[in-house]
């Protein structure tokens, strides 16, 4: 069960992730004015930020070890940071620098850190079968490691999701499938795309235990993930968890979100970090002072990572030809 020390750690990690993404958002937009050009500036390209979804990453990763694997989706920063991917190298990658995780070849949708068995894919649901294969390798080698496939609720309508569930269940592999249900597949609402309210029911088609977790509450997410991870480590096979969360910002930066209407204001009120902060304050686990120092510490780490990225050299143009083949 979640104890009070863990709650403070969860809070710190969520603040760390939010602080990071707020800083990325600031720098992403800083030099795209006055004419907004997606390809311009220090951070070019699409940018999918995860604000609101921190409880999923934090509750999940508190159950994982370095040797466990995650395949994430196009919106990967919260998962990467919570898994333990080095913030400086990740930031340098997002800034397209030679010191980045992939020497600037991957960018924000293609973060690879083999030391943390972390990867992500920009193609919906298609990272999920890869996690099945990582679990197959763990199982073959007799380790107790698990693989986690994370995707959005839109991805659960894609074939890759269903094939991955079927294989993992058939072979009883240590996989945890996490569906982050933030209600929106870009601009398409869940109700427009998915005929059932509880997507975890789909696991029954594959003979797999599952649960839907409402509330976007890191404590509840931790508990559900713990059950799934323990089952997988013990050889009990895969689990599907659909976690109802919230997307506070646009699908990508620059998304005006006119399609969300009043729902957006309601979502903003459900920002999980202030809500959790309030609970921990009321329980006496945090004080105004400790909150201030947690936030200052996060700022310090984040700004150091961004400064590192900005000070790092760009790759040589001719490096574009490296690493096509091993």
């Amino acid at each position: 069960m979640v104890d009070n020390d863990m709650r403070v750690d969860f809070y710190k990690e969520m603040v760390r992730i939010r602080t990071y993404e707020a800083a990325l958002q600031r720098d992403y937009h800083a030099d795209k004015a006055p004419a907004w050009d997606i390809g311009a500036g220090l951070i070019p390209g699409e940018m999918h930020l995860s604000a609101g979804q921190e409880p999923v990453a934090v509750g999940l990763c508190a159950n994982l070890e370095q040797g466990d694997a995650i395949t994430g989706p196009h919106r990967p920063h919260h998962l990467a940071l919570a898994k333990g991917v080095d913030m400086k190298a990740m930031t340098a990658e997002i800034f397209g620098r030679d010191t980045g995780l992939s020497h600037g070849k991957g960018g924000h949708m293609h973060l690879f850190d083999p030391s943390q068995h972390f990867s992500c894919s920009g193609i919906i649901a298609q990272g999920m079968p890869v996690a099945v294969g990582q679990a197959l390798a763990f199982s073959r080698r007799g380790t107790a490691n698990v693989a986690v496939a994370v995707a959005g609720e839109g991805a659960a309508n894609q074939g890759g999701f269903h094939e991955a569930l079927n294989l993992a269940s058939m072979w009883k592999l240590p996989v945890i499938f996490i569906i982050e249900d933030n209600d929106w597949a870009i601009s398409v609402n869940r109700e427009t795309a998915t005929p059932i309210k509880d997507g975890s029911l789909r696991a029954s088609a594959y003979g797999m235990p599952s649960a839907r977790i409402e509330g976007n509450d890191v404590d509840a997410i931790y508990d559900a993930c713990r059950t799934a991870v323990e089952r997988a480590r013990a050889g009990g096979g895969p689990t599907l968890l659909e976690i109802h969360t919230v997307r506070l910002w646009g699908h990508f930066e620059g998304d005006a979100q006119a399609y969300r209407g009043d729902e957006l204001a309601a979502a903003t009120e459900n920002d999980p970090i202030p809500l959790y902060e309030k609970r921990l304050l009321a329980a006496g686990l945090l004080t105004e002072d400790s909150i201030g120092s947690i936030k200052a510490q996060a700022e310090e780490e984040v700004e150091a990572a961004i400064a590192y990225a900005k000070a790092s050299p760009e790759p040589k143009p001719s490096d574009a030809y490296l690493h096509v083949f091993a």
Binding site: H117, V132, L167
Partner: peptide
């Protein structure tokens, strides 16, 4: 059967699983 695995007709699933195993150092 543990090293010569008959798969369901799920090419995305089992090719992806091959990739995942290869990423972890196996040689599928």
């Amino acid at each position: 059967a543990t090293r010569v695995i008959d798969t369901p007709i799920s090419e995305t699933g089992f090719i992806g699983a091959g990739i995942g195993a290869a990423v972890e150092g196996m040689r599928p």
